[in-house]
Design a protein around this nucleic acid. Structure first.
Length: 476
RNA sequence: CGCGGAGUGGAGGAGUAGUACCUCGUCAGGCUCAUAACCUGGAGGCGUCCGUGCAAUUCGGGCCUCCGCAACCA
């Protein structure tokens, strides 16, 4: 059986899952369900990134053992499976024993290949916060919380990865694989970035300062920097290095990630794989960010959209609908509850839900039992237009395609008027409704990867030949 | 001159070298199978200047405006 391996990034567990990550994992879930329906054996990986300074600090603040702290978060993230109706079949935690071992093994290979070395690393330290600061955190070269204090430059010895060595090989990979990064604009961006030249990056931290990480093999004074450890999950999840047959049967991977992760996924990680003599990933799919009211979501603005809350109010299917149809798959998209409700009413209540009701009402009145039972079970291919779109991760366009069919069927009912014809020529009307039912089946089947429950409900109603309770009630 | 991206009717979004599409809103009409739903028609738009083309919103250039980008941020 053909195999298909896909993964999301592993969210860092220092805050509640937010709707941006919901977008990523729902996109991945749609693809996983689609390929499964096409007969592939799918491995769908998801999990949590649990090491590093931020988590260590939070655990200390909460007066908790870091492991207990991450246990709590991992459970929270795993709840997304029910909340969003996901079908991932592996939940990896970077604190899992086999992952830790894999990360260390990976390190050793890179080291053996001469790509890991020690050097002095200059960090900027704010005495006010008692914290190391990254350049992006600084405002005009100062700590934004303590702008009148000078930053101290501290030096420490860290391990570095020889990223610079892989510039040419990365560029060769990009040339050889024209669809390596989706969409093209992001691919272009990363090519430009790599062309400009690469700097080796730091891949460890002093264990004395920050013990919450994977120990560096052969050097107990250092732990791996989270990125190095976390990226390895993509191979450890499918058995590397101790189950190579399994690994080889699934690798390479399709990775879903946000635009902030472009470099890590499509350059750094690929260089790491090269260093370890492993085949590059299959494809990287980069989505945009979700803004709220045109602004980046932030607690201080109070515009954070909580996926759990949306699901409670509108249902899982509605959220899956909104994120796949109303948000562009690769650009930033805006999410406000107002827009969500609008989309819900027009697309789901008035569109899909209402169409289902009107067809089934006629069918229920004109037929003793469903006239399309044979047709229901028939295995039929999806329209080629549909397949092409979904395989290119064009979620919105695929959904638009389905909704075009919905609109056409609404028009057909209006024009053929089976409800009038029935009064004079019941046989003719029955034929018409039978056609309509077939269209509805086709709609439901195309919808399966996106809205699995709704699809199932529609097919069940057709089978029972009974108008169901409204699938989506209008929200006022 | 660091790199990259974006500017489409009142709002939010697709799209394209040749009558510019969708949702909401708005105006007029129609239908009764349906969830005050559904259908038909109207009003209203491609930031700006220049260039290339028979033809540009689409290609190229200038300008204006906005937004990302060596980390732990989806």
């Amino acid at each position: 059986m053909s195999k298909f391996y896909l993964t999301t990034t592993l969210p860092y567990v220092n805050a509640d899952p937010h709707v941006g990550f919901a977008l990523e994992i729902i996109q991945a879930d749609v693809i996983a369900r689609y390929y499964r329906s096409q007969g592939y054996e799918v491995f769908f990986n998801f999990g949590t990134d649990e090491h590093g300074q931020k988590i260590y600090e939070k655990a200390i603040d909460a007066n908790m053992d870091p492991q207990a702290y991450t246990d709590m978060w991992a459970k929270k993230f795993d709840k997304l499976k029910d909340t969003l109706n996901l079908t991932y079949n592996n939940f990896i935690r970077t604190t899992d024993e086999h992952h830790v071992v894999a990360a260390q093994e990976f390190w050793k290979i890179c080291e053996k290949n001469g790509d890991i070395y020690k050097k002095n690393y200059k960090i900027k330290y704010c005495v006010g916060c008692e914290l190391e600061k990254t350049d992006s955190e600084l405002v005009e070269g100062k700590c934004p919380i303590h702008p009148n204090m000078e930053l101290e430059i501290r030096e420490e010895e860290n391990y570095f990865f020889r990223f610079s060595k892989y510039q040419d090989r990365l560029l060769a990979l990009y040339t050889a694989r024209p669809d390596f990064v989706i969409p093209e604009s992001r691919f272009h961006e990363i090519k430009k970035f790599v062309e400009t030249g690469l700097e080796d990056f730091s891949i460890s931290r002093l264990a004395s300062k920050m013990p919450w990480g994977v120990p560096v093999p052969g050097d107990l004074t250092q732990v791996m920097y989270v990125w190095f450890d976390a990226l390895v999950n993509y191979i450890s999840a499918i058995g590397w290095p101790d189950d190579l047959p399994k690994f080889n049967s699934f690798w390479p991977v399709v990775q879903f990630a946000g635009k902030d992760n472009l470099r890590q996924q499509s350059a750094m990680w690929q260089a790491m794989l090269m260093s370890a003599s492993l085949e590059p990933s299959k494809q990287i799919v980069i989505h945009g960010f979700i803004t709220s009211g045109g602004k980046k979501m932030s607690k201080s603005l109070g515009n954070v959209i909580n996926p759990f809350e949306m699901v409670e109010k509108y249902g899982t299917e509605a959220l899956r609908y909104f994120l796949t149809r109303e948000v562009t798959p690769f650009e930033d998209g805006d999410f406000t509850e107002e827009r969500f409700k609008e989309a819900y009413n027009s697309g789901l209540a008035n569109g899909l839900g209402n169409l289902t009701s009107r067809i089934l009402k006629m069918s229920e009145s004109y037929f003793e039992k469903s006239p399309v039972l044979d047709f229901l079970d028939e295995k039929r291919d999806m329209p080629p237009g549909y397949d092409k779109l979904i395989r290119n991760y064009e979620f919105k366009a695929t959904m638009d395609y389905i909704w075009e069919v919905i609109a056409e069927v609404d028009v057909e009912i209006q024009e053929k008027k089976p409800f009038l014809v029935f009064k004079t020529d019941p046989e003719m009307a029955r034929k018409m409704v039978e056609e309509l039912l077939k269209h509805l089946i086709s709609i439901a089947k195309m919808l399966t990867p996106f809205m699995p429950e709704t699809s199932e409900n529609i097919l069940e109603a057709i089978k029972a030949n009974k108008m169901p309770a409204p699938l989506f009630l209008r929200k006022e």
